[in-house]
Amino acid sequence: MGDTESSEAGIWRRGLEGDAKAFGEIFDLHKDRVFRHAFRLLLDRHDAEDVTGTVFLELWRKRTRVRVVDGSLLPWLLVTAGHAAANTRRATSRYRALLDRIPRTEHLPAVEDEVLARLAPLGEDLHRLLQQLGPIDRSLATLVIVEGYPIGEAAELLKLTPAAAKTRLSRMKARLRLTIAPALSGQGDIS
C-alpha cells in the first residue's frame, strides 16, 4: 500500500505541475470509491453520479488547496462527497416541499379550438416577447398567466414580494398589449 500512496502523491504532483493525464489517472483511481460513498449516502444512482462529478470538479477547482493525507487524495474526496451529498439532499428536500405546495388539479380543462385559432397569429409575437423577458419574469408569466397560479404563490416561489410580482406582471401585460395589438386588429377580444 505504501507504493500506491507514494505513486498517487507523485501523480498528483504531476497534475499540479500541469500534466492533464495525471488528473485522469487520479479520477480513474478513485471514481468508484467516491461513487460508492455517494450512493451509500443518497441511495440514488443518478444523484450519486452527479455527486461524483461534482467532487472531481471541486478537486480540479481547488487543486492548489487540496489536502493530501498519507499520500492519498481519497480522504479529501470522500469528505467532499459527503458535503456534496448533503447539498443534494437539501436541494431535493426543497424541491419536494415546493411540489407539495403546488395545488394539484384532477383535470385540466381542454383548450377550445376557437381560442387556439384566434391565438395562432400571436404565437410568434408571444414567443418573441417571452424570450425577451428575464428568467424571473418569464417564470412569473408562465406560472400566473399561462398556468393560472395565484400571484402570491408565484411570488413566494420566485422569492418576490407580492407587490413586486404585481408590478412585474403589469409591465409585462403592457408590453404584450403593445406587441400583439397589430395582430389583434379586426379579430375582436381573445379572452
Rank of each mutant, 00 (worst) to 15 (best):
M1K: 11
M1H: 13
S7D: 15
E8Q: 13
A9R: 12
A9S: 14
G10H: 08
I11N: 11
W12R: 05
R14M: 09
G15A: 14
L16Y: 11
E17N: 15
E17S: 15
D19E: 14
A20L: 11
F23H: 11
G24T: 13
I26F: 06
I26E: 06
L29Q: 14
L29A: 13
L29F: 13
H30L: 09
K31A: 14
V34G: 06
R36P: 04
R36Q: 14
H37I: 03
F39Y: 15
L41D: 03
L41N: 06
L42C: 09
L43R: 15
H46K: 13
D47H: 08
A48R: 05
E49V: 08
D50Y: 05
T52R: 12
T52I: 04
G53R: 13
T54E: 12
F56G: 03
L57H: 06
E58H: 10
R61P: 00
K62Q: 14
R63A: 07
R63H: 13
T64G: 09
T64V: 11
T64Y: 06
T64E: 15
V66H: 07
R67E: 09
V68C: 10
V69P: 04
V69E: 14
G71S: 11
G71K: 08
S72T: 12
L73F: 06
L77Q: 07
V79G: 05
G82D: 03
G82V: 01
H83G: 03
A85N: 02
A86M: 09
A86I: 00
A86T: 08
R89Q: 14
R90H: 06
T92K: 10
S93T: 09
R94E: 11
A97F: 01
A97P: 00
D100M: 04
R101Y: 08
I102M: 15
P103Q: 12
T105R: 15
H107F: 13
L108Y: 13
P109A: 14
P109V: 14
V111G: 06
D113K: 10
D113P: 14
A117M: 11
A117I: 06
R118K: 15
R118T: 12
L122F: 02
G123R: 08
H127M: 04
R128G: 02
R128L: 07
Q131T: 01
L133W: 01
L133H: 00
L133I: 01
G134F: 01
I136K: 01
D137C: 01
L140W: 06
A141C: 08
L143Y: 12
V144R: 04
V144P: 05
I145G: 00
I145W: 07
E147S: 07
Y149V: 05
Y149G: 04
P150I: 09
I151S: 08
G152K: 09
E153F: 10
E153C: 00
A154P: 09
A155F: 05
L158D: 04
L158N: 02
L158A: 04
K159C: 03
K159G: 00
L160R: 02
T161A: 01
P162M: 03
A163M: 03
A163I: 00
A163C: 00
A163K: 02
A164S: 07
A165E: 02
K166N: 09
R168T: 01
S170H: 07
R171Y: 02
R171L: 08
M172E: 00
K173S: 04
K173P: 00
K173E: 07
A174I: 03
L176W: 04
I180Q: 01
A181H: 01
A181E: 12
P182A: 06
S185M: 04
G188H: 11
D189M: 07
I190E: 08
S191E: 13
